[in-house]
Computed example of a mutant assay.
Amino acid sequence: MVGELKAAPDTLRARTAPLLPGLAAALAAVAVALAVHAVVPMMPAMTIAVVLGIVAVNLPGTSALCEGPLRAGLNFAGKHLMRVGIVFLGLKLSLGDIAALGWTTVGVVVALVLLSFAGIYALGRLFRLDGDLPLLIATGFSICGASAIGAMAAVRGTKHRDTVLPVALVTLCGTLAIGVLPLLMNPLGLDALHFGQWVGAGVHDVGQVVATAQTAGPVALAAAIIIKLTRVVLLAPIVGVVGVLERRRHRLRGNAAQAVAGAAGKVKFPPVVPLFVLGFLAMILLRTSGWLPACAVAAGSTAQDIALGAALFGLGASVRVRQLFKTGARATVMALCSWALIAALAFGAVRLMGP
């Protein structure tokens, strides 16, 4: 008995030791990203974290480290810290703020998300993208960027390496939006309020929304954030629907396999809604209840930035630029078309929202 108790810490140490170098590198990258963002607010910290990861794995001096002693920790960050970040993302949402928009505006936003999701998924099939790429890109573009991709990948059981390209593409297009959309504000005849609504409806990641909308002032920023967070709420129901369909598919496949093999064992089904998505919903309810003090909400926001930033650095450190150009050219063109599609749909949604 004593020997088993002594062996347990040794086993835990043996499992965690390989993760520590990569996790330390990811946290250091987050610190750099947050520092750069503090100096240059126009550059979202999460985008910087992805770029740092891509640079690290493609520079001759650090590439061997990323593929060697850091790899286990980077992969852990890209998968598990992403889920932690999604849970804390819920603290940014209050159902009261969304209800204040009015049923018409909320209905328009819901319709926008569903239309953009379906349209981008169809584009992915049209471009003949492999595997879960169409679904992951559609989820990231229509809801909330890398966080949504991580949630959908968990439901689908997508391998970690297959989430790298969708995250890179949603980051690329969201970063382009920061520079391009403000240039279109005056030509499209948008005032600050409507520009903010357009940004909130059409830009992917929350940080990218803030960076883009703040160029038009506080009115635009406030409008963009509330519209964007309304889109984020839809993460749970869309993931839940896909989870039900995925569970049904596994059940049919499992029944067929048992019928052929005569197996008596039970088939393991994927969860309808992953545990971390339930945590995301619980955080929304906590924020809506008003029970949490402002300091707790601020601490949760900081935890979300750290966890998501480390995850995005880990994912970025899996993007080989040469391989991306060879295998991801078709997906890149499809993502740019998707960006144009959601921008057009968002512009139409703004017109429907009225003055």
Rank of each mutant, 00 (worst) to 15 (best):
A100S: 15
L89P: 03
K159D: 11
G157W: 09
G107N: 06
L176I: 13
V108M: 12
L176M: 14
C144Y: 04
A138I: 09
L169D: 00
L169F: 02
R156A: 05
A148V: 07
L133M: 15
G174T: 09
K159T: 11
G140Q: 11
V164M: 04
S116Y: 05
A99T: 09
A111G: 14
A177D: 05
W103C: 06
G131H: 13
D97Y: 09
F88C: 09
V170Y: 01
G145Q: 02
L114S: 12
L126Q: 11
D162C: 09
V113D: 08
H160W: 08
G124W: 07
I143S: 00
A154V: 07
P182S: 13
W103F: 12
G85H: 05
T175R: 06
G150T: 06
C144L: 11
L136A: 09
R156C: 02
L126N: 11
S142W: 06
L89I: 10
I149K: 05
V87F: 00
L115S: 15
L169P: 02
L172N: 01
L114A: 15
G150M: 12
T163W: 00
T171V: 15
F117N: 01
I120F: 04
M152L: 14
D130I: 02
V113E: 03
L165V: 10
T171G: 12
D132E: 08
L126S: 12
G174W: 09
G119R: 12
T163Q: 10
L123P: 04
K92P: 00
H160S: 12
F117C: 01
L93T: 13
L135N: 02
A151R: 07
S116E: 06
V110P: 04
R161Q: 13
V164N: 01
L136N: 05
G140R: 10
I178R: 03
A154L: 09
L172S: 12
G107T: 07
G124C: 13
A177R: 07
L165W: 00
S94A: 10
I98P: 08
I120V: 15
K92V: 03
L101W: 06
G102Y: 07
G131K: 15
P166C: 11
F117K: 02
A111P: 13
V180H: 10
G131A: 12
A148N: 03
G131E: 07
L115Y: 05
V84K: 04
K92I: 08
G157L: 05
G131Y: 07
G107E: 04
A146H: 06
L114D: 09
F141K: 01
L93P: 05
V110S: 09
D162G: 04
A100C: 10
L95R: 12
A122L: 14
L165K: 04
G102W: 07
Y121P: 03
P166A: 08
G145R: 05
R156L: 15
L115W: 09
C173F: 11
A168E: 03
L169W: 04
A122Q: 07
F88W: 09
G124R: 14
R128N: 13
V87P: 00
T171L: 13
V106A: 14
H160M: 14
R125T: 06
A111R: 12
V110N: 08
I143H: 00
S94R: 12
K92S: 13
L133D: 06
G119A: 15
